[in-house]
Amino acid sequence: MILYWLVTFIAFAKHSDEEEEWMQRIQNGDTTAMKLLYNKYKNLLFGLIVSILKNREEAEDCLQEVFTQTWENADQFDASRGKVYTFLVTMARNKAIDRTRSRAFKDSEKEDHIINDFTLTLEGEFNNPHEEMEFAERAKIVRNALNQLSEKERKVLYVSYFNGMSQSEISDKLEIPLGTVKYRMRQGMIKLRDMLVPDDQK
């Protein structure tokens, strides 16, 4: 197990250096580096955005916005403060959730739709040909860990992450007491930590 974590860590560090180098080149206006970054992350980020927006056309527009903004604001990326992965995933999630909060999106009544079929993303196939190899192994571990949570804990985490809802909004939407939402969120995150973070790092 320790060997597995070590190998994963070394592989990750290598890819992380490569991505940081791409970001530096993007900061200098290198469009080839931009293509490399896009091709590595497009499927992961597009999948995330589709999970939030449930609308392919709007998700493509959002993905385009994420990468053009990455290009424009590349100088805001600071490797000492976080990984390229975190920078891109955070931006993609925030932009998609912002869109769900827009008046136009609410008018199209997609909000309930998102809540109701959240399980679709969890039950998706594990061996997806669109999955970047580097992400595939880790994704499998994360999904397995999520599958080991109780359905109720998983639901609270999903609605929070993929719908950007506060605890009180989740309480209203799922019609469960606020205290229960807090409890399930805590339990879910603690269990995921136990499963995903190696003991020697805790």
Partner: peptide
């Protein structure tokens, strides 16, 4: 984020 299904744009 890795729990979502990777999809090709």
């Amino acid at each position: 984020a890795l729990a979502s299904e990777p999809t090709s744009p």
